[in-house]
Simulated scan of single mutants.
Amino acid sequence: MTKLITVIAIFIFTLASAQEQQVPTGGQFEQGMGKAFGLWKEGTSSEASDLFERIAAAEPSKWLPNYYVALVNTTAAFGTKEKEQISLLLTKAQKALDVEMGKEQNNAELYVLQAMINTAWIVYDPMINGQKLSGPTMGLYAKAEAIAPNNPRVVFSKAEFEIGGAKFWGQDTKPMCMQIDKAIALFATFKPETAFAPSWGLDRALEAQKNCK
């Protein structure tokens, strides 16, 4: 099971690398967000997280800065094997996400990110967290799907998580692979609401599609 969950983690770890942002010029928020994405792209995730955190403090009405604090730290957690560091990163991610979840319970992107944090904890300790968090994680994807059934990240992430479980139990993955096909079609027409809104996932969905075949 550890190997299976690790495979899932490798898929999730590179999701953020596909987050393409067309950074607009303008106010301090846009400039700050653009700079933070630049730091993240350069591989300095800690500095990017710190900047996103400062932006979140200055712009409490905007959910995206804390979203990216959580996403940066979650993907960083998938990229390290040091248990203590993983715990610190995921704790920071959860703290940032909790702020936004406390404001808004109708945002599918937040539920997908919470599911990613849960998956990271499963990787951290599969024997303990696998049984404890697998059910709640599927519940998060169900909530996200109810809110935004045509969001490609919702469709893809849920299918990918289900594929991991299906492979572990020796079940047919064809239904999940069909959902990945659906997600790829949705990516073709999906338009983020703003320049900084989440847009990642297509590259991982295409790779998952190849593995399905």
Rank of each mutant, 00 (worst) to 15 (best):
T6F: 08
Q28N: 14
P149A: 14
R153Q: 09
Q105L: 15
E145Q: 14
L90N: 09
S87R: 12
A166E: 09
V123H: 13
Q21P: 15
G34N: 07
S199Y: 11
F187K: 05
Y68N: 03
M33Q: 07
E104G: 02
D203A: 04
A146F: 04
T173F: 05
A58D: 11
F161S: 05
T2R: 12
T25L: 14
T91L: 07
A208W: 04
S87Q: 06
L89A: 03
Q22E: 04
N73G: 06
K41D: 10
T119W: 06
I8R: 11
F161L: 03
G170L: 09
P65H: 00
S199H: 05
V7G: 00
G38R: 10
A9N: 09
E109W: 00
F190W: 09
M116A: 03
K191N: 13
G170E: 09
A120I: 03
T173C: 10
D172E: 09
V154M: 02
E193V: 01
G164A: 01
K103G: 12
Q19G: 08
A93L: 06
G201E: 01
N129R: 11
S46A: 12
N73A: 08
L64M: 00
M176I: 01
S45F: 02
P198M: 10
I55V: 12
L51P: 13
P126C: 04
A115S: 10
Q131R: 15
Q22D: 03
T14N: 15
L15D: 03
L90R: 02
F168E: 08
E42M: 11
L15K: 09
P198N: 09
G164C: 04
E20H: 08
G32Y: 08
E207T: 15
Q85W: 06
A77V: 00
K41W: 04
G27N: 07
L89Y: 06
T74V: 13
A195Q: 01
M1K: 15
M127A: 10
P192S: 07
T44Y: 11
T173P: 06
K132W: 02
A58T: 00
Y141P: 04
A144E: 15
D98C: 01
P126S: 06
I5A: 02
A48V: 07
F78R: 00
I180C: 09
I122S: 01
T75P: 12
E145G: 07
P175E: 07
F29A: 01
V154I: 12
M178H: 00
T25Q: 15
K62C: 01
Q85V: 00
A9E: 07
E84L: 08
E42G: 10
A197T: 00
E30A: 14
K83V: 02
F168Q: 14
G32C: 13
G139F: 08
L4C: 10
A166T: 06
K167H: 08
A205S: 12
Q209V: 02
K167A: 11
P192C: 11
T74L: 13
M178G: 07
A56P: 04
